[in-house]
Design a protein around this nucleic acid. Structure first.
Lengths: 166, 166
DNA sequence: TATTGTTATACTCTATAACTATA
DNA sequence: TATAGTTATAGAGTATAACAATA
């Protein structure tokens, strides 16, 4: 039987956190559709972009930039490397680290995704009212900055963890 | 060694999808801090709100309202029931279904969380510029509505899955 | 001593298929 | 036949601890 009465969602539709979540899930589903044929997921795309813009960067720095822990970045980079989109090369100045670079195929894939991304972004902007996109992005940046405020970046999580052990 | 050069994020900071994700993660971390002492997570909060506003609703309807599959709702409701916040009672008109209701303790917990939620929401609004909150929520609703557009609600996922098998 | 990449592990969230008892 | 709740399971994503090699 159908649910004929609409469900009362109470304060949820007016909560920034709740609606951020619903919007993010919907937009990511849309992104995944756009990138499906290339089999590139949002996290993959972030890594490819950062490496393309910062060739030679090491894994820890890529992870920090994207909010991905270095231990979780390993299988992600493994996969991109196996697919021939990205290379781990020895870093010139630090024998512990890898210098990440895109392969030619990596650049090609990223180039093709660029058109799809632009098209999708235009659709999203039209949906919200194109003239409001800048305002939306500004607000999202301010909200994302909460993360920086609360846990001061004076110490890394690992440094804090080690300090706690003593 | 510190990363002295800022990492070039390319187009990511201008992408609605990317910034939605970063903002949502940051805001949820903040919510989790606010609700930590009650040990209530965002999904729990959604269930409690919907059940309090729609006493007697069954699990499938609660899940549909919140975008949670009914199979994933089971352990969530289990936990809330074990904690004495919520009750499964036999539905009057359908012996397959449960009528969900909050216990007195459930209402009490929700009441206490309400103050914290309002305080947190005020902080978020101040951060983005209080007069822009309505505009933000409107845009988030429009983006969340993508999900409804693309997969028409004329058939449920299960109906489609069954149809595909034939 | 600290950091890089790695492994192992655990926990949450999400998605699908199949079952039962009802409808 | 279809639906409500459940179970089992698999896949992501995320978090922590510990290790070898190097700084």
């Amino acid at each position: 039987m159908d649910q004929m009465h609409p469900v009362d969602m109470g304060p949820l539709p007016d909560l920034i956190g709740y609606m951020l979540r619903r919007a993010q899930v919907a937009v990511f589903q849309d992104v995944n559709r756009c990138f499906a044929e290339a089999a590139i997921r949002p996290a993959d795309y972030g890594v490819l972009i950062v490496v393309s813009k910062n060739p030679g960067l090491n894994q820890t720095s890529v992870g920090d930039a994207l909010g991905i822990k270095r231990s979780n970045l390993v299988p992600l980079v493994d996969r991109l490397e196996r697919r021939g989109l990205l290379e781990r090369r020895p870093a010139a100045d630090d024998r512990r680290a890898y210098a990440l670079t895109l392969t030619e195929e990596g650049h090609n894939v990223l180039g093709r995704l660029d058109a799809k991304r632009a098209e999708q972004e235009a659709r999203l902007k039209q949906r919200i009212g194109a003239d409001r996109a800048d305002s939306l992005l500004d607000m999202l940046h301010r909200l994302a900055a909460i993360a920086d405020d609360e846990c001061l970046p004076s110490k890394t999580g690992e440094q804090i963890a080690r300090a706690r052990q003593r």
